[in-house]
């Protein structure tokens, strides 16, 4: 095993563990959220290891740094009101098994039909650099980018409207 593989297994394995922890800590919402933070952070590290610096840092900044802090904020405000999280005692085994099989089949189909040849080619000069991604965002993907920002704007205006109506 090369050093790269060891590093990948370590980070990827921890990320997978974190993802599992999100569900496993269902009784304690804050720990669940923490596991998700760990997962997001390590996903950013994985992007770094692939040379996609900008994607990695945005993953850390937006998901681990901003969205999850908001999540925690909400969880904590809820914890202020009631200390006990709702418990789901009933277990839906058939549904869980079907879901697990479907997921496994999807993952397996990707692994089986996986073509590694594009990944063995050397990447271009500006790969993963902010300049390259910025250039794409402002030329080829300008319209989707703007549509996404309009969507966000609509979301903000909508939430303000909803909050106003209740007040």
């Amino acid at each position: 095993m090369t050093a790269n593989q060891v590093a990948f297994l370590l980070v990827g394995g921890l990320a997978a563990l974190g993802a599992t922890g999100v569900v496993a800590c269902g009784e304690k919402p804050v720990r669940s959220a923490l596991c998700l933070v760990l997962n997001f952070f390590l996903l950013g590290v994985l992007y770094f290891m692939l040379g996609a610096e900008l994607l990695g840092i945005i993953q850390v900044m937006v998901y681990a740094g901003a969205i999850m802090v908001l999540f925690l904020f909400v969880v904590m405000v809820l914890a202020l009101q009631s200390q006990e999280a709702p418990r789901h005692k009933e277990r839906r085994w058939p549904l869980a098994i079907v879901g697990a099989i479907a997921l496994a089949a999807t993952v397996a189909s990707v692994i089986v039909t996986f073509d590694p040849s594009p990944f063995s080619q050397p990447v271009g000069d500006g790969y993963g650099k902010p300049q390259a991604i910025g250039a794409y965002l402002f030329t080829e993907y300008a319209l989707p980018f703007e549509v996404a920002s309009v969507l966000l704007l609509v979301g903000i205006v909508g939430s303000v409207l909803l909050a106003r109506r209740n007040a």
Partner: peptide
């Protein structure tokens, strides 16, 4: 790295966790 200043922003935004979790725990 190419993302120098973004790194500072990202890491300083992680600083919230210590305080938030200390408050919660």
């Amino acid at each position: 790295v190419e993302i120098g200043i973004l790194y500072v922003l990202a890491i300083s935004s992680l600083g919230a966790y210590g305080l938030v979790l200390a408050g919660y725990a």
